[in-house]
Simulated assay, not measured.
Amino acid sequence: MRHVLVTGAAGGLGRAIAEDFAEHEDVALTLVDVDGARLAETPVEAVRITADLTEPETCESVVEQAWRTAPLDVLVNAAGIYPSVDMIDVDAETWDRIFALNLRAPVLTTAAFAHRGRSGAVVNISSGAALRARPGGGPYASSKAALEMATRAAALELGERGIRVNAVSPGFVAVDSDCNPVAEDYAAAVSVNPLGRPGEPSDVARAVRWLASDNASWITGEILRVDGGSSAGASHLPRLWPNTVRKGRNA
């Protein structure tokens, strides 16, 4: 039986990840979130820890608490925030709060996991925003771009300890969120991709579980784009000119 720790487990993606592990594997789960009430509603058997990961010492503490149940095998860093704030309006407090949860927390929990001297797998949750900024999303996009580099750096250094570190980068996935509601026109615009549908939390959860499994035992330092192909290019744009290649002739 593997022991899996999931942060941000009360949120849409974190909850789906926890449920997917519980449904498909014989696992012990430790779930962490700042919202204790919503965390209690996650319909899986688990140890639940209510904690604010923006506090540096809390990152070490949640790993230590989880370890008391059993040594950890998998760490999934799914906790994150994505407020809308223009770069011209951002202040130090907002910037630091975003980076504290989206970047520093997964770095510190990964370090705490690695210090225990046990091999295992870490999966960070990034975002397509790491590659493409959007109006109002600059600080969030910056934090996710930094998280992807931190993922590679950790993979480079922790491989000799038997720890694989990867990330899943979702495209647009519709999740319920009281603090970060998504307008219908925005959802319609960002749902355009080659596969023609927005993502589901289960799409991300399956990718996380695969990266954490032995089936991915020779994969580390990778960013897995789970986005319906939207990072491949802009499929919704028209052709600049008609196709000039005809059968039997060169253009």
Rank of each mutant, 00 (worst) to 15 (best):
H3A: 04
L5N: 03
V6G: 08
T7R: 06
A9E: 00
G11D: 03
R15I: 00
A18G: 11
D20E: 14
A22G: 09
E23W: 00
V27I: 04
T30V: 14
T30S: 11
L31Y: 02
D33G: 02
V34W: 13
V34I: 15
V34S: 13
D35M: 04
A37N: 11
L39T: 06
I49S: 07
T54Q: 11
E55Y: 00
E55A: 14
E55D: 13
T58L: 01
C59R: 05
C59N: 12
V62L: 07
V63Q: 08
Q65N: 11
A66T: 09
L72H: 14
N77V: 06
A79K: 09
G80D: 03
I81H: 14
Y82V: 00
M87T: 14
M87N: 11
D89C: 03
V90A: 12
D91K: 10
D91Q: 07
E93A: 15
T94Y: 07
T94D: 08
T94N: 11
R97N: 11
R97K: 11
I98D: 00
A105R: 06
T109Q: 12
T110N: 00
T110S: 14
T110C: 10
A112C: 04
F113K: 09
G120R: 04
V123Q: 09
V123N: 05
N124M: 11
S126M: 05
G128A: 08
A129G: 09
A130D: 01
R132F: 03
R134M: 15
G136L: 02
G137K: 06
P139I: 01
A141R: 05
A141N: 07
S142Y: 08
K144P: 02
K144Y: 00
A145T: 07
L147T: 04
L147H: 06
A150D: 07
T151P: 01
A155R: 02
L156P: 01
E157N: 10
G159W: 12
E160Q: 13
I163S: 08
R164K: 04
V165P: 01
V173K: 05
V175G: 02
D176A: 15
S177R: 10
V182N: 00
D185L: 02
A188C: 02
A189G: 02
S191N: 05
L195I: 13
R197I: 03
E200I: 08
P201E: 06
S202T: 15
S202C: 08
D203G: 02
V204E: 06
W210K: 01
S213A: 10
S213N: 07
N215M: 08
N215P: 00
S217Q: 13
S217K: 11
I223T: 14
L224D: 00
D227E: 03
G228D: 01
G228M: 04
H236M: 13
N243S: 12
V245N: 04
G248R: 00
R249C: 15
N250C: 12
